[in-house]
Design a protein around this nucleic acid. Structure first.
Lengths: 212, 212, 212, 212
DNA sequence: GATGAATGAGGATTCATTCAT
DNA sequence: CATGAATGAATCCTCATTCAT
């Protein structure tokens, strides 16, 4: 008989199991409602091991955030290396992002819905990453704008990047709740909406509010 | 004798005090970390009263959500009554929305960050409202599209509305964290980004992914 | 039927019950080995009440120390008010001290054996009181020494006071372990030893308490 | 090849390392707060080894007590062998005792503060040794008393010995907390106090150590 | 109506102790 | 001989919720 399930596993393996279980439980119940008991049980291990390897609940949550955050960032970064046009870069990043979310729904839920709703300890961890993304997008938009006059004023870029990232997140969140959704199609739609808009702005066109 | 500091307040007033306190505490600590003790104390009332008036913690949270949600919806609805062009309607709604958030930051935090991150019981409450908004926006976009051929296909509208609403929420969330932000300017920027994009789409233009 | 045991007691009463129970349990098992469960049970109350009224285990322990410490100090202080000869003051204080210990053995055990053996948080609380006592004794000895030349040098007083207090504590500790011991006799013996000295005692000299 | 850092040490050496570590940790944190983990780590050895060599935590603590207790007893005993006057014997024993404490502060803390504050299992171990010391002192005093009439009555001796030992312990404890203290001076002061008495000291009398 | 008093239930955390390798 | 891996059993503490007055 081949022992498919051996006890006494090396630390690295156990840590992965625990993080997997933790991400699943945090995604399902949220940080506070998640219990260390359930995490340990789902990891097929006793509670003290969780504490021994990953520390307190808070540290465990941070470890989850860091791992998933890094995976997400890497997945996107790999897709946008090298020289390319701004729109292509945006498109590729977006596609990689939504693709990752579709493939790791729990990770997204933990990162987006859970981490951000907890107080300072965690929210800031994630918010920092998010800010970097917004900045990168703003830089990307800025790079595109430089070529053409008259472009959007600097001040607008931050807000637009925020809005653009928010739109992406909303699609991601929608994808996380709809397993059958097609991330590539969603990415294309967002590109259509946003790039045509941004491109038009680059021509100097402006939308102005109707007289009140 | 005029009671300068009356005890026996009418029920409606008491309930308002409690809900105000609850919204503040939920916004500050999140649903789970919020304690009924603190809510009662901040409302200047004893705990059993809270239970007598508004029921369990869960019910209290739902009451908060419902009240704030309704206030938000009403604030927006009031601004978009009557006949008007699609872009004006969008603009007005957006401006009312962001204005409300700027004026009621705690409400937004409870509705957006807290309610959505809790499990099924509450998330669905809010998600329902949100879906109605997305549908309304989709209808608005659809209405605009009908007049011009060739417009975006039906299927795209839902995704675009989702993205648009997400962009609005991201700006709202940003405003909630930046008391000095100008909601009207943010609304204008989003209109620029999104309406010019959408308008361009209506002309039949399309953004297509570069050949892989 | 007269209800000898009513529930729903006023706060002050419950606090006393809890402190009594806590002192007993701390005396029996020591700080660490004592469990809040047992304290609550012995106080005839549920654990959350203990936390509500007296705070954490640490705070509870401090509260015990403070209460018993104050009772002890008061008992001694009451006996040594007014003008009197140094040896009479010492004798009276000693007698009151050992009498208190005989009457409150648990209190002594908590103050002397438990509090002093715990780390900084508590040891220092008690050590401060103890230092005040040692200083007072040193002052008393110093006062007596001033009248006569050549007396012990200043530097010696601190050490002697320390030794004297230690001797008193050892007797107290012995009394705490021997319920039948006579505190007054023990006090008299210590006075003899310390005021006259063993070598002097061998000559047949005796110290006798002043007529009360 | 000469192993500069040998692993396989003889059992006796290992046990010494462990006991040293244990004494240090018990002195620092107290019996309960001390963790086997820290002891093992400070001994530079894995936990199972500690269990294999010295048994459970309780047994380990007893082993510490026994070793240090024996060292202390031996140090004192060596100083008081042979014929000598009672006061010289007392003086020498006292000096050896305080000298040992000054040189082994951790040992004293474990023996005096920790062992005595734990429940029956350990307190009795130490109490037995202590009783032997008190008895020896009582015998010493009794021996001195026999030569001269009228001396202190029998009953008094036990109490006086207890007090005397307590005074010595108090000085020892003070020394343990004051590394710069001079144990020999402290011993001399205690001899003065106890052998001559404070009242007698006031007359200018002094006890002086016999020429070494 | 209003509240101080009271608790059942559950969650995080730690630790002494023991296998399996 | 030696140790990393593993856990059962407590313990502290908190909180939503309800009585009795």
């Amino acid at each position: 008989m081949t022992t498919t399930k051996s006890r006494r596993l090396p630390r690295a393996v156990r840590e992965r199991q625990m993080l997997d279980a933790a991400v699943a439980v945090f995604a399902e119940h949220g940080y506070h409602a998640a219990s260390m008991d359930e995490i340990a049980e789902r990891a097929g291990i006793s509670k003290p091991m969780v504490y021994a390897y990953l520390g307190t609940k808070e540290e465990l949550f941070v470890a989850c955030i860091n791992r998933e955050s890094e995976l997400l960032m890497t997945a996107v970064a790999e897709e946008i290396v090298g020289e390319m046009e701004p729109d292509e870069r945006l498109w590729r990043g977006l596609r990689a992002f939504l693709g990752f979310v579709a493939a790791h729904r729990d990770a997204w839920i933990v990162l987006y819905r859970q981490a951000r709703s907890q107080g300072v300890p965690f929210a800031s961890e994630v918010e920092a990453s998010r800010t970097r993304v917004v900045d990168a997008v703003a830089a990307l938009l800025g790079g595109a704008a430089e070529r053409m006059e008259p472009g959007p004023v600097k001040g607008d870029l931050a807000a637009m990047a925020t809005a653009l990232v928010g739109a992406g997140e909303a699609l991601a969140d929608w994808i996380a709740d709809h397993p059958d959704a097609d991330p590539e199609a969603a990415a294309a739609r967002l590109m259509n909406l946003v790039w045509l808009g941004f491109g038009t702005l680059l021509t100097g066109a402006r939308w102005t509010p109707p007289a009140a």
